[in-house]
Write a protein that binds this DNA or RNA. Sequence first.
DNA 1: CGCACCATTGATATGGATCAATAACTGTGG
DNA 2: CCACAGTTATTGATCCATATCAATGGTGCG
Lengths: 270, 270
Amino acid sequence: MTEKAVEVFIEDLVRRRKLAETSKNDEKSHILFQGLSENSLQTLLSSSHMKEISAGQQILQQGDTPENLYYILEGKVKTQRFSLDGAEVTIRLLGKGETFMDAVIFMGGKSPVGAQTTEDCRFLMIPAETVRRQAFNDSQFACNLLQIVTRHYKTAIQQIDSITIKNPIERLGYYFLKLHIENGSNNMDITLPFKKSMIANHLGMTPETFSRTLNQIKKMNVNINQGKLTMRDAYALCHFCDPDTANTCSRFGSEDCPISEDNCGGGKCH
Amino acid sequence: MTEKAVEVFIEDLVRRRKLAETSKNDEKSHILFQGLSENSLQTLLSSSHMKEISAGQQILQQGDTPENLYYILEGKVKTQRFSLDGAEVTIRLLGKGETFMDAVIFMGGKSPVGAQTTEDCRFLMIPAETVRRQAFNDSQFACNLLQIVTRHYKTAIQQIDSITIKNPIERLGYYFLKLHIENGSNNMDITLPFKKSMIANHLGMTPETFSRTLNQIKKMNVNINQGKLTMRDAYALCHFCDPDTANTCSRFGSEDCPISEDNCGGGKCH
DNA sequence: CGCACCATTGATATGGATCAATAACTGTGG
DNA sequence: CCACAGTTATTGATCCATATCAATGGTGCG
């Protein structure tokens, strides 16, 4: 990364950090840089560089040694695993402002997952060695990483849960619900952020099953058309909510919220 | 924890740490205390206390706020999740020397998993607040935690992979293989560390399927009798190995190892 | 000895995968 | 702007792996 690029990047970060302080708008993966001194930020960024990778490229193979932490400035990515006979599992689907290989760097040894662009991408790449050194030198940074990795872990647990004890309708419904909440719980229109077949794989089902499941969901006040999802009412997906997710929903506790403790006393009703 | 107990515990830790330096015997979860100053150790332990909990007790409910990090001094534990209709998924099965709620403490909010003893247990409990504070004050400790959590995350990824694209035989075979390697790759006798029905649940299958799968595996030079597993030869389970796991096997690279690069050139053969 | 609990075995049911054909969409070049 | 090729999504028919249901057999404990 050139001196100039570093400066621009830092400026942007600082601006956003100030923004985050005043408003409640916390952009997700800025957690990585949260609360860092200018100095620490400099150390991280001065050894980093940017890279553009076009859509559909394998950024990193499962089994490679991870040399960098990737921060997505632009574009979308999936991380995946392959079985010996070529079957693929999508572990994460991620976009702008998210990081990957953040956890892998601390696992030691080869990466258990591969990563692939699904759109043209621009990355900020921070060398793994720098990240490890800085984690050791700056406990604020280490704590930021801890927060990120535990969040990934939590998501992974939910994924295990979802694949093991939920049926396709519940999985898809829950996925849509989370998109809905991410988009702001009042927004009734959602554009699917990935190809259907990718989401299907991520949810542990085939594209055929995904398609059929979509038809089921259409009967529930939700319409899907050309990758556009339109909810008849804001509560259409509440059926798929759980107490944990409810906490992140702006309508949690409102009169119509089925999870709300006021409505059933204990968060385990329904 | 009383002054006395602290001292005994620290003495024991120090002894083990010295042991770990000289031999290659790295007991798993001592990672938590690895490389900490006496001072840091004191801080952590002086606010800790011990607790005994009998078999079958729910230590912590899914949805509770985690108040402590648990270190298992004695006994066995499972962490689990429940669906709204009562179905259970076992996330981890763990024993002596392992920790839990380590990651959850940094997730913020309620615990996404519950924990239950499966045997009589004795725990060292370190208050969550102490852990968080110490992570911030001692980057060595933070890095230890990072290592632990990323390891959990990796296991979770493998679990997702396993449930999604492996059949019951492969799952069970892989589980046995890992036990075998943990026990020292030359040990041909393994005692199942948990009840079959628990392992079954952990592997995402019913007890019935587990039982039938066991019969399949018996045809492959592995015998199981009353929770005792006996391998005809040390390579009986190699069929279920993958390049990643091979690295942790003492026989990796030997003539008969099917993963060894010498035998196929690239670690993707078979 | 008898009661629980757990594991095993057999019979049956079923959800989702697979296979196969068609349809809709995307982008490209004339 | 349309025609065409390539990709992605949908729909229908069939199959199969694993869950479920039900009965039996062990094992340990009071």
